[in-house]
């Protein structure tokens, strides 16, 4: 087990270096000059040159990358934004909880939907519930997050507050907020709300958007896995022993059927970070996605690298955790 974890850790470091190098190289393939952008309106060549020197962009790529690695490893610093010289650490640390709330809450919600529906569908294939579930899955899989987000905003946000729908009028009210984020604890600058209730309230629609998107995949996967596991010989053995159906399901089917789901979940957290960009955009959540999108718009390399580094650390850590979790569930890996 220890050797297994060490192997995974070494692999994680290699991955990390590869990802950051690729990000640097891509950035330098794009023909823009961040110094010119940072030097203000109509700068003189001398001004641009001095800004470039100040930002460090006049140095060769490998030197900049080395400096970045040194800062990261020794000072635990991601550098400072080209645009406003704010510490990237601060930017990222402010944005991370937003994205984390969105992704983790969304993942919990989608698993809460997907596990019971998937298992039920597998146990009652071709039943009415199964057919409805499979049809909804198709919708979920083919829908785009922005589309889902906008529809939800319209139905649960706009319609109640507009006071009329389908030709009827009613006293307008706020049902669910469609914009903004509230800290779980302590409001940050410019925020009007905070606390767990507001936090939850503002995240309901983003979470549901997320969950619709991924629950569909998971319902289908869990259904397929459970159906396959139900046909395993050891499940028949359990029944032959006289185990009641519920115990067969709990003790022999679910654990085995969940093995691939755990792996998928780990990988999808990474993909979900990508999906988060879109969902944050629709619901105006100041998360990592927003941060990165803004930074790309202004060629703010340290912020871009900062979000990439942070995201890759998160993804790599998640994969590591999933690998360990997987080994813990599956003795063939743990002891093999």
């Amino acid at each position: 087990m220890t050797r297994y974890i060490i192997r995974r850790l070494l692999w994680a470091i290699v991955l990390f270096v590869a990802i950051t190098i690729i990000t640097y190289v891509i950035f330098y393939l794009v023909p823009t000059d961040p110094a010119r952008l940072a030097a203000g309106r109509n700068p003189t060549p001398a001004q641009v040159k001095s800004v470039a020197h100040y930002l460090g962009t006049d140095r060769p790529v490998w030197y900049q990358y080395g400096l970045f690695l040194k800062r990261l490893v020794i000072d635990h610093s991601l550098g400072y934004s080209f645009a406003d010289r704010v510490s990237v650490n601060t930017d990222v640390l402010n944005a991370a909880p937003v994205t984390a709330s969105l992704v983790i809450g969304g993942a919990i919600l989608w698993m809460l939907i997907a596990i019971p529906v998937g298992v039920f569908s597998a146990l009652h294939p071709r039943s009415k519930t199964d057919r409805v579930a499979m049809a909804s899955v198709l919708v979920g899989i083919s829908a785009h997050p922005i589309w889902i987000g906008l529809i939800l905003s319209y139905v649960f946000g706009y319609i109640p507050s507009s006071g009329h729908a389908l030709g009827f009028s009613f006293p307008s009210f706020t049902f669910l907020p469609i914009q903004g984020y509230c800290n779980l604890r302590g409001a940050s600058q410019g925020q009007v709300c905070s606390g767990p209730i507001q936090w939850l309230y503002h995240l309901i629609l983003p979470w549901v958007t997320f969950a619709i998107l991924y629950a569909a995949f998971y319902v289908r996967m869990i259904r397929a896995n459970v159906m396959e596991t139900l046909n395993e010989d050891y499940v028949r053995t359990a029944r032959a022993k006289g185990a009641p159906e519920l115990q067969v399901l709990r003790s022999h089917v679910l654990r085995n059927a969940m093995l691939p789901v755990v792996t998928m979940l780990g990988m999808d957290i990474a993909i979900a970070l990508g999906g988060a960009v879109l969902v944050e955009n629709v619901f105006g959540l100041p998360g990592l996605g927003q941060l990165a999108v803004t930074a790309v718009g202004t060629f703010d390399l340290p912020v871009i690298i900062g979000t990439v580094v942070f995201a890759s650390i998160v993804v790599i850590t998640f994969n590591l955790l999933v690998d360990i979790l997987y080994a813990w569930i599956d003795p063939r890996i743990r002891l093999g």
Binding site: E232, D233, Y234, R236, T237, A240, R255, D330, P331
Partner: peptide, 15 residues
């Protein structure tokens, strides 16, 4: 009681 043909798959691998 019943035992089956394939002992490789008749026992639950995770228990």
């Amino acid at each position: 009681s019943m035992i089956f043909q394939d002992p490789m798959t008749s026992l639950n691998p995770v228990h």
